[in-house]
Amino acid sequence: MADLTLYGRSYCHLCEDMKIALEPLRRDFSFVLHEVDVDGDAATEARFGERVPVLTTGTPAGAGDELCHYFLDVPRVRAWLAAQAISQYGSP
């Protein structure tokens, strides 16, 4: 199963929009969505500042690649999830 991490803030409407926009992808792909409130840790807040939401690959503990920020890049996220499914199962 693929891991994605959404960095955001509880009061951020763009963060909520990105989370909602990810849900339709669950019809085609299995993934775990980890949510991190950037205001919960000084280092994370310094890393992202006002640049949220940010969606990355991997878990919060891993150093994942950024897939998109501010708005969900559906084609890019879909392509990444498909690649993960192929590498894990041989087909999406």
Rank of each mutant, 00 (worst) to 15 (best):
D65I: 07
E45R: 10
D39R: 09
G8Q: 01
D17I: 01
E16R: 12
E50I: 03
A61E: 15
A85C: 13
I86N: 07
Y70A: 07
L81I: 06
T59V: 12
H34M: 11
L67V: 10
P75S: 12
G58W: 02
L6E: 00
H13Q: 15
E35Y: 14
E50Q: 10
T59A: 15
A42Y: 10
S87Q: 14
A82Y: 08
V32I: 14
D37V: 01
T44N: 02
V54D: 00
L22P: 02
A82N: 03
S10M: 12
D73N: 15
L22D: 04
A82V: 08
L55V: 08
C68G: 03
Q84T: 09
T57E: 09
G49I: 04
S10H: 14
A79Q: 14
K19C: 07
T5N: 02
E50A: 09
E23G: 03
A61C: 11
R9W: 05
G90K: 05
M1I: 13
E50D: 12
D39N: 13
D65W: 04
A43P: 00
M18S: 04
A46H: 12
F48L: 05
G49C: 06
D39L: 11
G90S: 11
A83F: 12
C68K: 02
E35L: 07
V52F: 02
A82K: 07
G49H: 03
G64R: 08
S10Q: 15
T44R: 10
Q88S: 15
T5H: 02
L22T: 04
D17P: 01
Y7R: 04
D39M: 07
D39T: 10
T5K: 01
P24L: 09
P24I: 11
L25V: 07
V32L: 13
S30F: 05
Y11V: 04
V74K: 11
G49M: 06
T59D: 07
V52G: 01
G62N: 10
C15A: 09
P92G: 11
M18K: 02
L81G: 00
P60I: 08
R78F: 11
P92N: 12
D28T: 11
L25N: 04
E45S: 09
F48K: 03
F48G: 01
R9S: 12
V77R: 00
V38D: 00
C12W: 07
G62Q: 15
A83Y: 13
L67G: 05
Y7D: 01
C68I: 02
Y7T: 03
A63Q: 14
G49R: 06
D17Q: 12
H13F: 13
H34Y: 15
P24K: 10
A42H: 11
A2R: 03
S87D: 14
Y70G: 00
M18L: 15
R9N: 06
L33V: 04
G58D: 01
A21T: 07
E66M: 15
T56F: 01
L6C: 06
L6W: 01
D37Q: 07
D37L: 06
L33M: 06
Q88D: 13
V52K: 01
T57L: 11
